[in-house]
Simulated scan of single mutants.
Amino acid sequence: MGFLQIPGLGTVHFHEYGTGDKPLLAFHGYGMTGKQFHVLEQSVLKEYRVYGFDHFFHHESRLDNWTEEQIVAGMPRAMMRHYAEEWFKLHGRQRFSVMAYSIGANLALILVEEFPDLVDEIILMAPDGLSVFKGFHFLLHQGPGKRLFKRLTKSKWMATSLLRNLLRIGFIDQALFDIAYNELDTPKKRLDVYYTLNLMRLLTPDIEKLPDLINQHKIKCMLIFGKHDNLFPHKKALPFIEKLHNPDIHHVDLGHWLIVPALDDYLTKFERQEIADHLRQINQ
């Protein structure tokens, strides 16, 4: 574990784990920590050394005396560059890869935009950021939505009632409902949701520019989607995917909640099959 001091922003805490020697900067999903990817021990962690950053309002990352007005205005995109620059001060300027799950994909992809000449591989799971998610856009960027979001935060019942309705119409599954409900059942948790999403509201990658950068710099790109994910499904990302040269796309028999041992098993079996296919081609 360690800390990065980001000028004008705050202290970013990161977890360090994995037995591989290739550096992988990782960004978790909402309500988790930078240690979220520890379950991928037989696949990703054997190849990479993971540096998993905690989002603000999660675990030990802390803003430096930001007011609510500053938080709601959002963290400037330019500050994401400092994540890598400050990490370089600790570990030396070197090539690295990025990994992210859900909303963390926005942060990872901005780093790719900032350092395309240094990135080897992109691994994204159930990624946000590859298309405009209308629900988040409404709550974070449109006047009526921003007012509703603030009311949901202050109310004792509105947020949980909305979740129940989303479950009823099938927009989210029971697993996602349980996770989200657990993040909204106290005033502090609701405020943390409000602050987290608003702080990240400007951290959206340029999905028109990114495919060209990925192709130009021949960055390997693995995208993993849950077959039953209604939040960030594969079909929404198709316009982005179709612009990439040879992306490695996977559809796993899971919902949005992807970072589980079953994904580790899937990736391990896939890697073994790739090796077997390669050896078969050599021997033919």
Rank of each mutant, 00 (worst) to 15 (best):
M222A: 13
Y181W: 15
I103Y: 00
Q142F: 06
A26R: 03
T67E: 02
L210H: 05
E68R: 09
L163V: 13
H58N: 12
E242H: 11
E16K: 15
V252E: 10
E113W: 04
N106H: 11
F56R: 01
F57M: 04
L202C: 09
K156F: 11
P233R: 10
L163I: 00
A159M: 15
K150P: 03
V193W: 12
M75Y: 01
D185Y: 08
F171Q: 13
L184Q: 11
I110N: 03
L25Y: 08
G170L: 03
K154V: 13
G8N: 12
F149C: 05
L244G: 12
G20A: 08
F57A: 02
D54S: 11
N165D: 07
H38C: 00
W157P: 02
T186W: 08
F136R: 10
E47G: 00
F56P: 01
D206N: 15
M32K: 14
F232Q: 01
Y194L: 04
V98T: 01
I224G: 00
G20W: 12
I103M: 08
H15R: 07
F14V: 06
A105E: 00
L199T: 07
M79Q: 11
H245G: 01
F37M: 01
G104I: 01
F56H: 02
Q281G: 01
M125T: 13
I110M: 02
T204Q: 13
N230A: 04
T186I: 02
N198G: 07
F177I: 01
H59G: 00
L118G: 02
G8H: 11
G8P: 10
Q142D: 10
W87Q: 10
L4S: 04
A78T: 08
L197Q: 09
Q5D: 08
R77L: 13
R62C: 08
A175D: 14
G74F: 04
D212H: 13
I123Y: 06
A159S: 13
A26N: 05
A159T: 01
K146N: 09
G143H: 03
G8V: 09
